[in-house]
Amino acid sequence: MSNRKRSALFTLLCLCILIPTTLILGSRLKGRWYYLTSTLIVVEAMIPFFYAFEIRKPKAGELVTVAVLAALAAVSRGAFAFLPHFKPVVGIIMIVGIAFGGEVGFLTGAIAAFASNFFFGQGPFTPWQMMSYGMGGFLAGAVFHRSWEKWEKKKLFPVALGSFGFLSVLLLVGPLLDICSLFTMSSTLSWDFAIACLSSGFFVNLTHSLSTLLTLLLLGKPLLAKLKRLQSKYGIWER
């Protein structure tokens, strides 16, 4: 079997067997099992991405490039010390996803979140953060990876990138993190608490999505050009 088929089969196995089993088992148990169940599902949803990366046996240069970009995303806040609350992390992860494809984008996001938590402290939110940052990169790759070179010349390309980033952080990346606090802090699940959690995170998410918009608007084109050069000159993550 080719690597591609193996990873597709594995993904299917995870989605169709592992996750439903966890859900059924989790709903049968009493107590505060929902945090555990939800976190397990988040972890299980990440496994196929990691597995695909492992069996692909990446070249040394590709491995180092992903490491460099993940580290860059993790430390990027340092460049904006004078602008509190400005977080360019997800923007950079999205650019990686667009240039190298959704899977690499996911990996960069997940590793960046995990590694930066070694410095800021791991917590019950770690898998959720990995998932949400990874999803940011994956989504950007899924939407733009195939066609960005065609659209690149258009004048509105950075604006399109920015607005995509804005919406996906506001609607997906941010709320995923809020859902984690819902599971860790509430004693019983209720819609009221969920709405309170999501709305209390709204302004944080708004500033987060604004900074993603600005990052993609200003850094999108230059960074994409640099990554494209790596691709064409050194054959790193070629399609």
Binding site: A60, G61, V68, A79, L83, F86, L218
Partner: peptide
Amino acid sequence: GMTALSALTDRALEGSIVTGN
């Protein structure tokens, strides 16, 4: 901040090729 970040990317990616080789 963006200019600094862009410069950092150049420097880091250049190093990544050397490390990979």
